[in-house]
Design a protein around this nucleic acid. Structure first.
Lengths: 349, 349
DNA sequence: AGCCGATCTGGGAGCGCTCCCAGGTGTGGC
DNA sequence: GCCACACCTGGGAGCGCTCCCAGATCGGCT
């Protein structure tokens, strides 16, 4: 009479069936049930059928904690976006990365765990989480040079692949990046070939390697073409208004510009507004070429933007592929994987 | 001599210290170590010190799988965005929800696991994941009326709180929504009070309850003011171009419009472009009021948009709070929590 | 002096799963 | 007829943790 109902398990805490339950229901052993569910070799068709049916009937789903306790795999991969809060909201590239991460990981049967890490405040929480064994590996986007995250990650034991250069680390890490300098070169060569001679640039924030490389590509290509880059670069912050202001500054300094290479689509939209307000015709008076070729932005502008095409999905795909290899072989030789870019030519140039 | 090194664990698979290791290092038992780490009662200060020091020295971090196997808690919460792929990319409201979800969950010590669920294709994968015990609960955004997800979730045993109405379910679920109809009423009353009489609306997709309610609010308020809503509504798809086209259609039908209530900021941006191209001055010729009051969009427009203010962070905060209570008490009485909205008046009206 | 409760500690059990190993059954080759 | 070898099955161990319980120690109070 001590077995009263007063204490029992929490209400609503319906017992989940375990593998043992499924096995009993199917009339086989726990081992056989496990083999059937994970379709291992050496299970008779009859046994497999019975187990699958039992699992279905009982509404069985395996306890992931128990499984990963023994397999030492969680099936989850972190995607870390290390970026000050404000930046993320309106950056279409980041949004595309999130989507792509979700899809690409789902395709290899992994679950994405998204981590936003505001560069300073969240560092220790992020590190603690990654270290806690919640995930098998991480895809990390940490574009800012001063970001301490990449170095902190070096000390951890989890496999990491970086999207874009890892701040402060030159070798020994897995990186999948775009050919930023080459892309800038494509853009500027295209403008030179079209007869442009006063080619300015609106560069991105020079605390990140991608915009640094784009600026370098612009400068080198001008020099190669015998043109003088002096005073023709203006730095902005990847935002629309930043692009608009930079364009104003360039126009004020050089009324005779005939082309501008803008380091992102978003800034190009701002530049377009300024040029429009200033009465410049595009491309007749000034040709515009940008970078990103964002699918929803670049073709939708007036006029549609010529833009250096880089596909976030392709980058994330390569990152996932590398990470999967790394998961199989911890000693995989680190490598810089540079993805080629192309130029999508439209009416703005 | 059988203990050769040939087979051993995978290279690079450095042994992680376990609780047992920490305990041995600190010279106490596993139980005491556990108590110290989880700061339970009844641990002497001396023991606690030793354990903490040992954990630090060994670089110990607890095995989450083992922990959640016994506690039956994972510490992770899913945030599910059930939405066709394309929509998500450029919807600032969704982006804000993701950020807010991450922050609010982090604040209560939980990890966000983001799930994108394209309404049709991903249903079974999403359900399987949520059921798999990967997470303790879920915050679900499934705005589309025809979405099968909410109904599927009813059959699961995990606690769920919906953001916005749950498709096809009227009662028995936890919902945190904004007062969409009330917001529309605020907007239209504001326009009426300013002397506007020909007040059109650009409504959102009528397969979602939020835009439906906004449209209803607009209609009722017009009727209450003795104005005729007939033929003054145009439906669009929440995109910029959708808003622009809808505005064109309205102008074509009614050259004498003196105000328009737009069901989202993004569509309002499109409407603004159309009005600008048509040579209408804002607000002199036509007043514009929108919905969302997105921080990066509404104040940045020319002119800045009067908009119905709703704060995604506030919504997510309430959702997290409800979910935490639900986690403690499975029998928590379901309730519709309707958040008030306000009107941010700016130059466009 | 004796006892009781509060404080602290260690060992054992067990969460639900996978993996290893011992064994059972069938089939073919000599 | 017997062995070798595939195929298939069940039981045991153990992953690393938390929780329960039994016991030890120590005051403070009758």
């Amino acid at each position: 009479m001590s077995e009263g109902g007063a204490v029992g398990p929490r209400a609503g805490d319906e017992e989940r069936p375990t593998l043992e339950d499924v096995a009993a229901f199917a009339g086989v052993s726990r081992s056989t049930a496990s083999r059937a569910l994970n379709d291992d070799a050496y299970v008779s068709a009859a046994a497999r059928e019975k187990v699958l049916a039992a699992a279905r009937d009982l509404g069985y789903s395996p306890n992931q904690a128990a499984r990963s306790l023994v397999t030492r795999r969680t099936g989850a991969i972190a995607v870390v976006l290390s970026e000050p809060e404000a930046r993320l909201l309106d950056d279409p590239y980041r949004t595309a990365v999130m989507r792509a991460g979700y899809r690409e990981l789902a395709d290899v049967g992994r679950q994405m765990v998204l981590i936003f890490s505001d560069t300073r405040e969240d560092l220790s929480r992020t590190v603690r989480f990654l270290e806690g064994g919640h995930v098998d590996g991480a895809l990390v986007f940490a574009p800012h040079r001063a970001d301490p995250l990449p170095k902190a990650l070096r000390l951890l034991r989890i496999p990491v692949v970086f999207g874009g250069q890892a701040a402060g680390i030159r070798r020994g890490v897995h990186v999948v990046d775009f050919d930023n300098e080459g892309g800038a070169r494509l853009a500027v060569e295209h403008l030179v070939a079209a007869g442009r001679r006063r080619i300015a640039t609106i560069a991105g924030p020079q605390d990140q390697s991608a915009p640094i490389d784009r600026l370098a590509g612009w400068r080198k290509t001008l020099l190669d073409a015998g043109l003088d880059p002096a005073d023709l670069a203006e730095e902005a912050d990847f935002t629309l208004s930043g692009g608009a202001n930079a364009m104003s500054a360039l126009l004020a300094r050089h009324a005779d510009l005939d082309a501008v290479f803008v380091a992102s689509d978003m800034m190009a939209v701002g530049a377009l507004r300024t040029l429009d307000a200033a009465g410049r015709r595009i491309p007749e008076d000034i040709a515009v070429v940008s970078f990103d070729d964002n699918a929803t932005l670049a073709p939708a502008m007036d006029p549609p933007l010529t833009s250096v095409h880089q596909d976030p999905r392709e980058q994330v795909h390569a990152m996932v592929e590398t990470l999967m290899r790394l998961l199989d072989d911890q000693n995989l030789k680190p490598r810089q994987h540079i993805l080629p870019v192309s130029l999508a030519v439209r009416a703005s140039s």
